[in-house]
Nucleic acid binder design. Structure first.
Lengths: 74, 74
DNA sequence: TAATTATTTATTGTTTTTCGATAATTTCTT
DNA sequence: AAGAAATTATCGAAAAACAATAAATAATTA
């Protein structure tokens, strides 16, 4: 797997914490944390939508395709 | 919903048709068509990965957040 | 125009995964 | 140390991917 979810950067830029963002996009902090730390295997476009709206950014600011280095499974 | 899947552009750029891409990423043409025409409600990161790999592009080339115009449901 | 190919749409069933709810744990921060 | 924030884990329900398939529509080509 070489798709990386990079929420940290935009969150820092917007100065918003996980709790606050979670509330804004109506998702539990637990699930947002999973998303934030690349533990999610899929994402609903509606969720991506909420995130982009809340952080005022594009999917490309959050999702990155990185050439497979070794040592990844999935 | 304001997340748009824009596969057409990159496919044209790479001169690859739906059938060929579908085979490359190991998904049925039917399902790829659904994805291509914004009928999908979610996407597996593994699928996004395959697409980026096959089209040699970034998620941001394929996914776009567009401010809600009216007349969309979901 | 007819035949062929590519694409879209629809249906059904299986499997995967999100997501809420919750609790416990760990990591900041003050 | 105490409180807040973040992570991790578990369970169950609902949603959705995806395969397989078939049928319909659009596009291409002979």
């Amino acid at each position: 797997m070489a798709i990386i979810v990079q929420l940290d950067v935009m969150m820092a830029k917007r100065k918003i914490g996980l709790m606050e963002l979670a509330e804004k996009i109506s998702i539990t902090p637990a699930n947002l944390s999973i998303l934030k730390n690349n533990k999610a295997k899929a994402i609903r476009l509606s969720t991506l939508d909420e995130i982009c709206k809340a952080l005022d950014c594009q999917p490309g600011d959050i999702l990155e395709y990185k050439e497979d280095e070794d040592g990844e499974e999935n």
